[in-house]
Nucleic acid binder design. Structure first.
Lengths: 206, 206
DNA sequence: CTTTGTGAAGTAATTCACAGCC
DNA sequence: GGCTGTGAATTACTTCACAAAG
């Protein structure tokens, strides 16, 4: 497979989110123009993104919605449910545990991990919380493939190392530091303060 | 001012986050090479980013750390504290309210807004929660310039409209939908399910 | 010597524009 | 007529490479 831009993969998610409800409510076909206008992007962008993975459209008509939904689900690997663990059961971690956005889109939060003995051994928002010492075994038993880091910045690196040694290859990092990981592990960073700062810059320059 | 790439502005935040602690612990100077290696990026990138805003370095020596910290703070508009409101006092909203990452970087969460009368009129994690009807007046009185949207997808657009009519020009949107706003308003989207999906794609293609 | 600042070169992503098909 | 698929053109971003300065 060719090198697909990261931006393309993220847009596929957006397409899916638009198309899935349309498919359920019975919309048959959609043109790149219509889909693009729903996302305020360029129609050629939509066509090019899809063309990386094959040719799904009908000239003169557009794309079959339900076919396209199935195809994107397959491309993104969200046909089956993905199990996720969250490390850090503080404010952010437990909010994420309870966040329904994840399950709606096919991700199941299986467990929280923390070091605080006031939290471990209990359920938080319905999700069991374990000690971080149990992480590696749990990941192995439950065949977990994805982890979310929601610990304070100063612990992020050591947690990342534990996660990597558990053989997880995909990490969503909320800690406001860049973490060092082997090249075969993918990290997506969600950096809240950074987003606010970039807004702040915008405000300064209106 | 020329067109500064969005990526440059976001990197400035990263530079700031590295430099600020260095400045406090007394590091005098830093070269673009050193700074770049701390972020695993190219030294020329650092120099080019900074050069958009002026010439701050000393040839042969590098950059004065505390000067640079002050300069970046000024560029990003984080010299003064920025007041922020959060709309939506559910799991995510209240977690964000309690998230210390914001205040550490100079943002103060002044209020939460919700429609649920079980929440309004109370304090949540120490932050007062008001009814959304009071939003416009509050923003005016308190001179709020930034808002965070943490409501479910189906309400995001109408909340965005309220925020826009309150004359706020910068929005951080956590709802998993693209919201339509006038071109003079800046929206940064933080899309958690999207980040997970892009990880999922990565896992499929190892 | 070292390191900056920056035009020029090189990459990557997006958009155009049109041939080909319905 | 309408719309896709895609090479070509454009735009945006990154990296190189070197003159100028300490």
């Amino acid at each position: 497979m060719k090198n697909i831009p990261d931006a393309t993969v993220k847009r596929l998610s957006l397409y899916y989110r638009i198309l899935q409800p349309l498919s359920i409510q019975g919309t048959h076909e959609i043109s790149s123009k219509n889909l693009a206008s729903l996302l305020a992007i360029n129609p050629a962008q939509v066509r090019k993104d899809l063309s990386y993975f094959g040719t799904f459209g009908k000239r003169g008509a557009g794309y079959n919605v339900s076919q396209l939904v199935a195809k994107i689900a397959e491309i993104l690997g969200i046909s089956e449910e993905r199990k996720v663990i969250i490390v850090g059961a503080g404010n952010l971690g437990s909010a994420l545990a309870a966040y329904h956005g994840f399950e709606v889109f096919g991700f199941k939060v299986c467990a929280l991990f923390d070091t605080d003995t006031h939290k471990t051994g209990k359920k938080i928002k319905g999700i069991p919380c374990y000690n971080i010492k149990e992480l590696i075994q749990f990941v192995k038993n439950e065949k977990i493939k994805m982890a979310v880091i929601a610990v304070p910045a100063q612990f992020a690196q050591q947690i990342a190392s534990v996660i990597v040694s558990s053989n997880i290859k995909a990490i969503l990092n909320f800690a406001p530091v860049r973490i060092n990981i082997p090249p075969d592990v993918k990290v997506n960073n969600v950096d809240l303060a950074l987003e606010l700062k970039s807004l702040s810059y915008f405000l300064k320059n209106i």
